[in-house]
Computed example of a mutant assay.
Amino acid sequence: MSFFNKVLASVGIGSAKVDTKLEKDSAAPGEVIRGVVEITGGNTEQKIDDIYLSLNTTYLKESDDKKYTVSGLIDRFRLSQSFTLAANERKEIPFTFNLPVDTPLSFGKTKIWVATGLDIKNAVDPSDNDYIRVVANPLMDSVLNAVSSMGFRLREAECEQAPHRLRSRLPFIQEFEFVPVAGPFRGKLDEMEVVFFPQSNGETEIMMQVDRKARGLGGFLAEALEMDETFVRFTVTNADIPYMQQKIQSVIAKYA
C-alpha cells in the first residue's frame, strides 16, 4: 500500500462500509436476536480492531430543573477479534444475542435500535443503525391487557432517569402512564403509572403509583402536598396470567 493510500484510509476516504441485517425486526425481552454483519472493504486495505453491536434507547434526564433527551446504552456485544480487511473484500459475520430482560418496550416515544460499529485505528469508524420493535412478553402483555380491560387508557410511555432508590442495572426506567376513562376506577383515580422490573426467572416485579382523585377540601390539600399518591410494589408470575385482571384490580382497589 502506498503512503498516499494509507493517508486516505486514515481519514476515512475509501474506508470500509458496514451493513447489519437482522433476522427479524421485532422481539420480546429475553428472546434471541440473530443476524449478520456485512462488511465491504474500501479502496485500501484496513485493519479492523473491533466489531461491536450496541443496543440503545433514549431517555429523559433532568439537570438544573431542566429535562433533556439523552441516549442510553442497554447492552453492548463484541462480535470479532481484530482482522485485516483487503481492498473491496466482502466479509459476513453472523451473530446471536439475547435481548436483555430489562429492555424497554416500543411504546409511545420509546425507540430502540441496534448500532453496529467497526473500530478502525486512526480512521473514521463506519457505523450502521437498525431499529427494532420490542414487544411485551406474555407476562407483561397480560398485565397491560388487564389494565386496559379495567377501563384505563395508555396516555404516555417514556423512559426517564431513575431515582437512586429505583436504579438497578440501567440508569433509567420506563413509565407507563394510564388514565381511567371507564370501569370501576373512573372518577376515583386521576391517573396511574406502571413500571416493570422484569426478572430472569419468569417473574416480573411491578411498581404502581396510584394517584387518587381529590375529594373535598381535604382531598385538594392532599393533592397540593402530593399526599394523594400511593406507591405499591408486588410480583406477578406466569401462573397469574389466567387471573391477572382480578389480581391487579384487587391491588388497585386497596388504594383507590
Score class of each variant (00 low, 15 high):
Phe185Cys: 02
Arg167Tyr: 04
Glu175Pro: 01
Gly202Ala: 14
Asp190His: 08
Glu156Asp: 15
Pro180Leu: 12
Leu166Phe: 12
Ser200Cys: 11
Phe176Ser: 02
Lys188Val: 10
Pro198Asn: 14
Arg186Ser: 08
Phe196Leu: 04
Gly202Arg: 06
Ser168Met: 05
Gly183Arg: 04
Gln174Phe: 12
Gly187Glu: 05
Arg186Leu: 08
Pro171His: 13
Arg155Thr: 02
Pro180Phe: 09
Ser168Asn: 06
Phe185Thr: 02
Arg165His: 06
Ser168Val: 03
Val195Arg: 15
Gly202Lys: 10
Phe178His: 00
Gln174Arg: 11
Ala182Trp: 09
Asn201Trp: 08
Phe172Lys: 05
Gly183Met: 05
Pro171Gly: 12
Gln199Phe: 09
Glu160Pro: 00
Gly202Ser: 15
His164Ala: 11
Glu205Gln: 13
Pro198Asp: 12
Arg186Met: 08
Lys188Cys: 08
Glu175Trp: 03
Ser200Gln: 13
Glu156Ala: 15
Arg165Cys: 02
Val195Asp: 09
Val179Ile: 09
Ser200Ala: 15
Glu203Asn: 15
Pro163Lys: 03
Ala162Trp: 09
Glu156His: 15
Ser168Ala: 07
Pro163Asp: 06
Glu205Tyr: 07
Glu160Tyr: 07
Gly187Tyr: 05
Glu191Phe: 00
Phe185Pro: 00
Gly187Phe: 05
Gln174Trp: 12
Pro163Ile: 01
Gly187Asn: 03
Leu166Pro: 01
Arg155Ile: 01
Pro184Arg: 08
Leu189Val: 07
Gly187Val: 02
Leu189Met: 08
Arg169Pro: 03
Phe197Ala: 13
Gln174Lys: 07
Met192Asn: 03
Cys159Gln: 03
Lys188Leu: 15
Glu160Lys: 13
Ser168Cys: 02
Arg169Met: 06
Leu170Arg: 06
Ile173Arg: 11
Gln161Arg: 15
Arg186Glu: 05
Pro198Met: 11
Val194Trp: 00
Ser168Ile: 04
Glu191Pro: 00
Leu166Val: 03
Phe197Tyr: 15
Val195Ala: 14
Asn201Leu: 08
Glu205Ala: 10
Glu205Met: 12
Ala157Leu: 12
Phe197Leu: 14
Val194Cys: 11
Cys159Lys: 01
Glu158Tyr: 12
Ala182Leu: 07
Ala157Asn: 14
Phe185Gly: 01
Arg155Asp: 03
Phe197Glu: 11
Phe176Gln: 02
Phe178Glu: 00
Arg169Asp: 12
Glu191Trp: 01
Phe196Ser: 01
Val194Gly: 02
Phe197Ile: 09
Val181Gly: 06
Ile206Cys: 13
Ile173Leu: 10
Phe172Val: 05
Gln161Lys: 15
Glu191Val: 00
Glu156Val: 12
Arg169Trp: 11
Cys159Arg: 00
Phe185Lys: 01
Ile206His: 08
Glu203Gln: 15
Lys188His: 13
Ala162Gly: 14
Pro184Ala: 07
Asn201Cys: 07
Phe185Asp: 01
Arg167Thr: 08
Phe178Ala: 00
Asp190Pro: 04
Ala182Thr: 05
Ala162Asn: 12
Gly183Ala: 03
Glu177Pro: 02
Arg169Ser: 12
Asp190Arg: 10
Pro171Leu: 11
Asn201Gly: 06
Val194Phe: 09
Glu191Asp: 14
Glu177Asp: 13
Glu177Gly: 01
Phe178Ile: 00
Val179Ser: 06
Thr204Trp: 02
Glu177Lys: 11
Glu203Ile: 14
Phe185Glu: 02
Arg169Phe: 12
